[in-house]
């Protein structure tokens, strides 16, 4: 069972990556420019932190680590599951889920892994570079960072599923859904130390950007069992809820008759 699942998932990823990589020049241009784009963000934060010293206890090394984690997690999510945020709402809106429903595999996984974003590879590479460059990578912080990469990826995936699934109820989600998803992405790209009080609680339990934006840095600075529980439990609960939400919406699916080809 698990073997068949992994074989299918591996083959699907291989196919969607091959599909993008067939246009090699496009692929590498997207990778390189995304890495350059990410570097501008980090340089801007470094200039600000060098001017103001620290923000609520965070120094420049913390913001570099946070940015590295955000880029790497978003990179993994977007490289493997780009079909969700960028495509799910469109598939539903245009009635193009037919191909996925007809196949004897998990519909959501099939849709999510059906698209690979080349620029995400640039995100991932620059993320790893900044994690290393932060100076906070050590034997004790490595397990926390690795756990964050998985948890963060799950959080991005859950949010993308939630937003895309709205298309079962509303028309035109493809446009404004992307805005909502990017708003969420922006929340993970600000220094987590600026979030305090109620906002911090909301960003952990209601809109879990904190799983990427501040919880990993707090765990690297001061590892606690409660922090680790939150890091594992919150993404799992959100992911389970998003999957439930999708299958609830799927009952409302109305197929379409548009012409289309994969890729």
């Amino acid at each position: 069972m698990v073997g068949k699942f992994l074989k299918f998932f591996g083959q699907l990823l291989k196919t969607s990556i091959s599909n993008e990589y067939s246009l090699r020049l496009n692929f590498w241009i997207e990778v390189i420019f995304m890495a350059i784009n990410n570097s501008f963000w980090v340089v801007t934060w470094l200039i600000l932190f060098n001017k103001f010293g620290s923000v609520n206890g965070w120094g420049s090394e913390h913001i570099v680590l946070m940015m590295g984690i955000t880029m790497a997690t978003f990179g993994i999510y977007s490289f493997c599951f780009s079909g969700t945020a960028d495509w799910l709402a469109g598939y539903i809106d245009r009635g193009e889920l037919d191909t996925f429903i007809l196949q004897p595999k998990n519909i959501l996984l099939n849709v999510a892994a059906s698209k690979c974003s080349p620029s995400a590879f640039g995100d991932f590479l620059s993320g790893l570079l900044f994690i290393g460059f932060s100076g906070l990578l050590s034997l004790s912080s490595l397990p926390i960072i690795l756990l964050t990469l998985v948890a963060g990826c799950l959080v991005f995936l859950s949010m993308a599923i939630f937003v895309g699934t709205l298309a079962f109820w509303f028309k035109g989600v493809e446009g404004w859904g992307t805005q909502i998803f990017h708003l969420f992405l922006n929340l993970t790209m600000q220094p987590g130390s600026i979030y305090t009080g109620v906002v911090k609680t909301v960003l952990l339990f209601a809109v879990p950007a904190g799983i990427i934006a501040f919880l990993p840095i707090e765990l690297v600075m001061n590892p606690t069992a409660w922090g680790l529980v939150k890091m594992v439990a919150i993404p799992l609960v959100f992911f389970a809820a998003s999957v439930w939400f999708f299958y609830r919406g799927l009952r409302r699916y109305e197929s379409g008759n548009n012409f289309g080809i994969r890729g």
């Binding site: 083959q11 196919t15 091959s18 599909n19 067939s22 246009l23 004897p104 994969r262």
Partner: peptide, 23 residues
């Protein structure tokens, strides 16, 4: 009007994926 094939890949690659889809 719908395709199971991937536009930038050969049919062979799509068939290999379908072999995994249908075990």
């Amino acid at each position: 009007q719908r395709s199971q094939l991937w536009q930038h890949l050969s049919p062979m690659k799509s068939f290999e994926l379908l072999a995994a889809v249908y075990d």
